[in-house]
Design a binder for these strands. Structure first.
Length: 272
DNA sequence: CGGGACGCCTGTGAGC
DNA sequence: TGCTCACAGGCGTCCC
């Protein structure tokens, strides 16, 4: 589910209230993608820092180390009052504090919560290594994207999804950004010209930024930490619209499969 | 080494 | 109504 906007929306909705809180208990449900990596009791008594985001990961400082969180395909985070409603079937991680409860709900359990000594060491460092640049930060621009795309030969959509050039754009926003830039998702990465790369970089930034202001996309179950749904999905131009009319021309939006993932695009508005 | 397929797990909606 | 199948917002790992 969650791509960069959803993860950032989640972060913003609990980071301030959680910072400084003292951990009183840790409650685990079914196993997530990886084991926690430490005794839950080790976290009790530690104070939380300000949650940070890197790509689709969140780093939550806890005492001397921290937790690296990922929402996978179906995860969502809620910040609940100290007297939280009882844990339900899909609630697999809870950090109880003196100020409230951070709860991860994740039906598919592709998500993760992993203890690490620091962001720069252990499991966190391993998982964060190799991530591409942050699309909403200054280092991401046309020249950077063009140079990076020149190094790759697979389809541009696949390169965007891989996350080692630029992080944060998952299936929805990769499709939407390519539509906004007028680029056929099957175009070989190294055949994207300089101006088109510049347009694509801008499109990625704009699509992600707009999704952020709309609170992300809620396709099925995404909610922010206060339980609010996002609204971006109502603005999607191609994602999930196969067989429907393009919003910009008379063509029909197509669905194809690239690297085991659905790709949606307009065969007229998007060119190789 | 780049690139693609696999598998992790559960839920939902479509079609029969 | 109930079953089966396709598909779902991600990504580390394995194999070619």
């Amino acid at each position: 589910m969650p791509e960069l906007p959803e993860v950032e929306v989640a972060r913003l909705s609990f980071a301030d209230v959680a910072a400084g809180a003292r951990v009183t208990d840790v409650v685990l449900g079914k196993p997530l993608r990886w084991p926690l990596g430490c005794e839950p009791a080790r976290l009790v008594g530690a104070h939380l820092g300000v949650a940070q985001r890197r790509g689709k990961y969140l780093w939550l400082p806890v005492g001397p180390g921290g937790l690296l969180l990922h929402l996978g395909m179906s995860g969502s985070l809620r910040w609940l009052a100290p007297q939280a409603p009882p844990r339900q079937a899909h609630d697999h991680f809870e950090l109880h504090t003196d100020r409230g409860v951070l709860r991860l709900t994740d039906p598919r359990r592709f998500g993760a919560v992993v203890w690490s000594e620091s962001r720069e060491a252990g499991m966190a460092a391993r998982l964060l290594a190799g991530l591409g640049v942050e699309p909403l930060e200054p280092g991401f621009d046309g020249p950077y994207l063009h140079a990076a795309l020149q190094q790759r030969r697979s389809a541009v959509k696949t390169v965007l999804l891989a996350g080692d050039v630029v992080v944060g754009a998952g299936n929805i926003y990769a499709c939407e950004a390519l539509f906004a830039a007028g680029i056929d998702p099957r175009t070989r990465s190294d055949r994207i010209s300089r101006p088109r790369a510049a347009r694509l970089a801008l499109a990625i930034r704009e699509v992600l930024a707009r999704a952020l202001t709309l609170g992300g996309s809620t396709l099925r179950d995404f909610r922010d930490a206060h339980g609010m749904a996002g609204a971006f999905q109502e603005q999607a131009k191609v994602y999930g619209r196969a067989g429907q009319a393009c919003t910009a021309c008379t063509s029909t939006v197509r669905r194809i499969v690239q690297a085991q993932r659905s790709t949606f695009f307009c065969p007229t508005c998007q060119r190789r």
